[in-house]
Design a protein around this nucleic acid. Structure first.
Lengths: 206, 206
DNA sequence: ATTCCAATAGGTAAAAACACCTAAGGAAGG
DNA sequence: CCTTCCTTAGGTGTTTTTACCTATTGGAAT
């Protein structure tokens, strides 16, 4: 369960110690909570998916590059906003990063104020993402309490079938369908079909 | 009303005549329908929002740049996939274009096969967008047939209110609410509340 | 002025959904 | 073996929705 009160963290992954230190100082100068890593692997080892914040990621690093780490995060379903930082302007790399869902792609040397602007924007994006995902998770938890049969009935109800048709479809008595429906309404804590449909649809495209 | 059977068009906007001709030949060599423009203004004057296809857009042009045209298209709610083409690698420009929703950002000189790959991908994206928007438009047309009062009732039903509560909310008789509901069901061509909710929600986030 | 339609409302009746009750068969686990 | 849970099903009754019918008011268009 993620915690909204915990402080957001700006993760910094860069193999250059001087850059790490300077970024850390810059971030802490505006009271941002920063954690630095010297390589992609150590970040992957320390980061847990529920942690809120954003990531400042150097593109060019030995062993695992920033692009590879970005790919790894997205493959792992981690949607943390990532600001890529690079010293060597490379358009294809920037385009690839943006297509992979990077929040921004910034060249060194960068303006401190502009970087902080982007960091704040990324943190705000993360906050919004997190709110949405919390709602989705609570919703998913509700549906987890349903049995397989009840899920079948939910989907048939949401599709707009009356109980009589649902009974025929499942080969059971209309009475039993009503029992299932009552149990579903209680478990999902809804009082009308309209609410049930909304709850189900909020999960479909999430 | 957009027409799915009409041929998709690859629009080319570039101030360099040699580039226009070469792109046009390349596109027509794979049986793509191409239309070329020498500046952003002439494209804007000729393009109509229902036309399907994609846009190959040169970044650097006199008067109105490709970036400005991209901004103008997005401001106008035109979601045609745009492939930006530039001769001078510029990371901030690429990032800005991608943030503005460009489909891709390609540097000259480009590989002909790769460009065609991207064009085909853009056309496929446009086809998907268009299918989705057609559905949305049909849906919107249905709701346009509803009166203001009926829209109020729809939203209260979708929110999960029973007729009795809706009547109290609107200060009218439960009987009248039922009349409205019946008219709504007929106009929207749905037979259950679940279908009404789905139809309404498909418009909410579109 | 007349016509058309939206909004209002009542009557009647059938269908559907929802709320309670009981209860049996089967599978899983302690 | 016993308990627990899922699934099944019937009974009874209330509430809600839906489908027909008629009918008045008021505004907008012709």
């Amino acid at each position: 369960m993620s915690n909204d009160t915990e402080q957001a963290t700006v993760f910094v992954v860069d193999d250059d110690e001087a850059m790490r230190d300077s970024l850390c100082l810059l971030l802490e100068s505006v009271n941002l909570n920063a954690r630095v890593f010297s390589c992609a692997q150590s970040f992957l080892g320390a980061f847990e998916r529920h942690q809120s914040g954003c990531l400042l990621l150097d593109v060019r690093m030995p062993d695992m590059s920033g692009m590879t780490l970005l790919d790894a995060l997205r493959s792992g379903g981690i949607v943390l906003p990532v600001i890529m930082i690079t010293g060597h302007g490379d358009v294809p790399m920037a385009v690839r990063a943006m297509k992979q869902g990077a929040f921004d792609f910034i060249q060194k040397p960068f303006n401190a104020r502009e970087l902080l602007d982007r960091v704040h924007a990324a943190l705000e994006q993360d906050r919004k993402n997190r709110l949405q995902r919390n709602k989705t998770e609570q919703c998913r938890a509700l549906f987890m309490t349903l049995t397989d049969r009840e899920m079948e009935v939910v989907d048939l109800v949401v599709a707009g079938n009356p109980s009589k048709i649902i009974a025929r479809t499942l080969g059971i008595s209309p009475k039993t369908v009503d029992i299932h429906r009552a149990n579903i309404m209680r478990k999902l804590d809804v009082r009308t079909v309209a609410e049930m449909v909304q709850l189900r649809l909020s999960l479909r495209d999430a």
